[in-house]
Nucleic acid binder design. Sequence first.
DNA 1: GACGACAATGGGAGCGGTATCATTTAAGAC
DNA 2: GTCTTAAATGATACCGCTCCCATTGTCGTC
Lengths: 350, 350
Amino acid sequence: MAKRPATIIHVAEKARVSVKTVSRVLNDEPNVTPDLKARVLAAVEKLGYSPSKAARTMAGSRSYLLVAFNDRRLTLDNWRSERGNEWIDQMLYGAMLRCEQSGYHLMFELVDRESDQLERQITAVLSSLQPDGVILTPPNCENPAVLGALKKRSIPFVRLNTPVRGQGPRVYMDDRAAARQATKHLLGLGHKRIGMIAGDYRFSSSILRVETFQATMAAAGLPVPDARIYKGDFTFEAGVAGAEALLDLLEPPTAIMASNDQMALGVVSVAQARGLAVPGDLSILSYDDTIGVRLSTPSLTAVRQPVAKMAEKAADMLICASAAGEKQIAGNTLVPFELMVRASTGPAPK
Amino acid sequence: MAKRPATIIHVAEKARVSVKTVSRVLNDEPNVTPDLKARVLAAVEKLGYSPSKAARTMAGSRSYLLVAFNDRRLTLDNWRSERGNEWIDQMLYGAMLRCEQSGYHLMFELVDRESDQLERQITAVLSSLQPDGVILTPPNCENPAVLGALKKRSIPFVRLNTPVRGQGPRVYMDDRAAARQATKHLLGLGHKRIGMIAGDYRFSSSILRVETFQATMAAAGLPVPDARIYKGDFTFEAGVAGAEALLDLLEPPTAIMASNDQMALGVVSVAQARGLAVPGDLSILSYDDTIGVRLSTPSLTAVRQPVAKMAEKAADMLICASAAGEKQIAGNTLVPFELMVRASTGPAPK
DNA sequence: GACGACAATGGGAGCGGTATCATTTAAGAC
DNA sequence: GTCTTAAATGATACCGCTCCCATTGTCGTC
């Protein structure tokens, strides 16, 4: 019992070669005769050998590990709310499956955005886990403390974030185009008074969405008064508060666009409470398209953010860079969004 | 740039003590004077030191890592279906947060239940990751190949599974009591003809649920004919097929109990297609209570399986055992379920 | 046929911790 | 005050792998 796993030494002995040769075969290094390679592989197979990640990490320059930093508060809020969210899920699948293909692993870390210990926390993770790369989600990807810690250690990272503030590798969707298309969708349905519930302005995409919304409306000759834009914080409660505020205006909007799903669901609940028909009296449009809005009644029209794809691409970039031994990641990657038109948007009432 | 992280040696030098003493402090070992301890901690703080997990794994007997094995097919099916599922999510939060408290980490592995490579795959993960413990979910927790591989390496594991087939540590809910309560709930509403869509019989809980359902009905003087039990496989499609079959009976049931959420949602879709009112014409009851049934229209009555709690408890057991240096985990843990009565069950029609 | 160039292998030094065991120091017993 | 015993500390051998460098073998070249 308590059988100890085979080590590279056992493999070397069984194949009658040096340890170094086994290492070469396992890492696909050149300059190994097919004969030896075959013998090594046979020994590996027979012993059920799989190299210890810990040892590789220690000895080599790669750890075969990626870390994804997520905001703790946002993540836990989403989880506790029973209204649904699947960001982490999508990241998990998108990135994890990609990692699997290359013998990598993915680990999640929740970081406390507000904490003064933040840099310390990041540093601790980096030195204890020694990841080959890091995936950053909002709002951490715009946090100088986080970015600084990463750069100091020169750990490659990719941000899942709209390109603003500082350069560096990113995977993102075109927030401007999305906001434009969403706004035009509502305009096309004849809405003139459209309200918006914005997200936390620490997230650049929030700002982009609002700005583009305003610009698109202005271009259509329908400038948006400030009162018609409510500043939320991505929570359901903010959606409720925003909807109340907007609907209490003297000239209430006939359509409301919310900057994420939780807030949109808040708007739905207010509409229900006030006996407003959706979309008869009020059209509602959302961003992200997580499960809650797909299953809600009515199902919501939403801009779908392809999180899984983004995470997959990010993992791909990091793995490729790490395999090539590069510390710098090249270029930004744009992934397409999609406007999912569903039951919550319809023609403007008279 | 490319600042290398501090090592235990740097800490030892700064605190003017031996490496071993630093190790003692970090591991809370006894026999260190408060004076030295303070000096070490100060040095740790000043250097922003955090011990390398890889080195600890190699040198010591602990890796500070738990692995959760999930079924690949089930997991990916659930993910692709846009109807919702949050098993992995719940496990992630439940177990991950517990791990965090003790400086542990959690890693997910998807395993191919059908593959003849299964044992090889498990073995590879065990020897490359060297986890301190493993969390097993159905159906892997009943797979002899999986259990065998674990036992051969004497890696502690905890199953999230109803107690059948073989002993060993488990965290589970009382499937019998749940099935009894669910059945009685429907009986209490006056239903006499109740159909059931069972889950895959490779999952013991499926069997328990069916058996208990039958027994409870029989005890109420309403034995269930075989035709009223459809054998599904936990997919939405099985729910659809099962509902069709049951509703096509000469004496169709007035209530259907499905052994998990996806199948229950399938039943809902059939009811809708046939113009049956839920619960007016047909009551529907489900197991698991993941997000899809909470958000569906109507929301479904369901037995809530406390997955996050179960995963948390499992992680707790493994961490405690590993900290105590024990390879054997003691005892089973029962966690309470809850019958969430919602809009999908109502009085039987005349 | 001697010589360099390059492919194919092996030897051995770490990587950053922990575990074992030896050693020093202090406390209590008589 | 000496002796015993346990507490406090340090020295050092690994753990399993990769990396650097040395060694050997095989050509082609003039």
